[in-house]
C-alpha cells in the first residue's frame, strides 16, 4: 500500500505571530518555521504503517516555495521513502492545495493519503475534506486511531461529543488529530541519509490547476487586548471580587 503524506511549512508553534505595522498581513521575516505539528503526526502514522508492513512506500509532498524542501528533508529523515516538491510562489487557498494534491493522487494512486487536520497558520481545517471530495474518496477526519484491515480503514475520530468510529473503503483520505500518536525525532544518521533520498520537483503551473486567488485578504489586525488584571491574595478576596466587582456569580 502506497501512502501519500502532504506536509506544510508553517510558523513554529512556539512563536507568537505578529501583525505587520501596515496591517497587510502577519510578519514572517526572520521567524522560525517548521513542519505543521499535525503533519508531523501524519508522517509518524505513515512511517508506523510502513514499519508494521502495512505500507509499502511513504511519499511526502509539500506545496510552496523552495524553502519547503527543508520540511521535506525532515520527513525523509523521519522515514519517508521519497519526496515531491510542488513548486509555486503563489499564495494558495486550501482549495488550490487540494486541487494540486488531487493531480498528484491521480499520478501516484496512493491507497491512503494522511494529512494534518489543520494548518496552525491559516487555521483552515479544509484541505483533507476537499481532497476527498475532488478524488471522490471517503474521509476520516480528526483521527485518533487508524487500523488498516481487509481493504478498509477503520478510523476513530475525535468529535465534539466523544469518539466516533467509521469504516472507510480504501482508497481513503485521513486527517490527524493530536492523540493519534507521538511523533519521533529524527536521528543524526537518518538526517544524513535523508540527503541522498529522492526529492522530485514539479512546477505547480505544469499541473493545469487555476491558482488565481478567490478570497482577498483585506487586512490583518491585532486581536482586542485584554486589560491587565489583578492578583488577589486569598480565596475570600477572589469570591468577593467575583460577586461585587465582576458580578459573574451571586
Amino acid at each position: 500500500m502506497k501512502v501519500l503524506v502532504p506536509i506544510k511549512r508553517v510558523i513554529d508553534y512556539n512563536v507568537k505571530a505578529r501583525v505587520k505595522p501596515d496591517n497587510s498581513d502577519v510578519d514572517l521575516t526572520n521567524v522560525k518555521m517548521a513542519m505543521n505539528p499535525f503533519c508531523e503526526i501524519a508522517v509518524e502514522e505513515a512511517i508506523r504503517l510502513k514499519e508494521a508492513g502495512t505500507a509499502s512506500e511513504v511519499i511526502a509532498v509539500s506545496i510552496g516555495d523552495k524553502a519547503c524542501q527543508e520540511q521535506l528533508r525532515t520527513a525523509l529523515a523521519l522515514g519517508a521513502d521519497r519526496a515531491i516538491h510542488i513548486e509555486t510562489d503563489a499564495k494558495l487557498e486550501s482549495l488550490h492545495v487540494a486541487k494540486l494534491l488531487a493531480k498528484l493522487v491521480e499520478q501516484e494512486q496512493p491507497e491512503l493519503v494522511i494529512l494534518g487536520k489543520q494548518s496552525i497558520d491559516s487555521d483552515n481545517n479544509q484541505t483533507g475534506q476537499m481532497l476527498a471530495a475532488l478524488t471522490k474518496r471517503s474521509q476520516g477526519t480528526f483521527a485518533s486511531k487508524v487500523v488498516i484491515e481487509a481493504g478498509k480503514a477503520q478510523v476513530t475520530r475525535e468529535v465534539d461529543g466523544g469518539l466516533q468510529t467509521v469504516s472507510l473503503t480504501l482508497p481513503a483520505i485521513v486527517t490527524t488529530d493530536l492523540r493519534l500518536n507521538e511523533p519521533r525525532y529524527a536521528s543524526l544518521p537518518n538526517i544524513m541519509k535523508a540527503k541522498r533520498k529522492p526529492l522530485d520537483v514539479i512546477a505547480a503551473d505544469s499541473l493545469g490547476v487555476d491558482l488565481a486567488p478567490r478570497i482577498e485578504l483585506v487586512k490583518v489586525e491585532e486581536p482586542a487586548k485584554r486589560e491587565a488584571g489583578v492578583i488577589v491574595e486569598s480565596v475570600e478576596e477572589l469570591v468577593t471580587k467575583l460577586k461585587t466587582e465582576a458580578k459573574v456569580i451571586s
Binding site: 505571530a17 496552525i120 478570497i215 487586512k219 489586525e221
Partner: peptide, 17 residues
C-alpha cells in the same frame, strides 16, 4: 472577520466566490 495564527491575528477577508 476570522482569527488566524491561533487567534494572534484577526483577518478581514473578502470572498469573490
Amino acid at each position: 472577520k476570522r482569527p488566524i495564527y491561533a487567534g494572534n491575528a484577526i483577518a478581514t477577508v473578502k470572498s469573490n466566490e
